[in-house]
């Protein structure tokens, strides 16, 4: 069964205030790094999934992203999917 590596990037919707991002942006100025005008904090979820083909794997991870990994009321998500070449250990290495 082919294995796929997925990375789901979850971010707050642009309309939702990100106070943690704002606090981190303020800290970047205190570090002396100037010019940071916008900073938003999200999550990156990495997973491996076995599926008969890429379309099936994508559909499963899309369902997972929409129903569990992100809350569509306040968050958006993006999915990057790639097949893991046979014989490599992937994430578990």
């Amino acid at each position: 069964m082919p294995r796929f590596h997925a990375r789901v990037l979850v971010s707050l919707r642009p309309s939702v205030l990100d106070p943690a991002g704002e606090a981190t942006r303020a800290a970047s100025n205190r570090l002396g790094v100037s010019g940071v005008s916008r900073l938003r904090i999200g999550k990156a979820v990495e997973l491996e999934i076995e599926a008969p083909d890429a379309d099936t794997a994508r559909a499963r991870v899309e369902l997972l992203s929409d129903r569990l990994l992100a809350n569509p009321v306040i968050e958006n998500w993006e999915l990057e999917l790639s097949e893991i070449a046979t014989g490599t250990a992937g994430l578990s290495a």
Binding site: L17, P19, A23, V73
Partner: peptide, 17 residues
């Protein structure tokens, strides 16, 4: 209850952290 969908919307981090 909001995650379950029994009530609409969501609760997230306080604006002043």
């Amino acid at each position: 209850l909001t995650e379950l969908g029994l009530l609409p919307g969501a609760l997230t981090r306080n604006s002043r952290l």
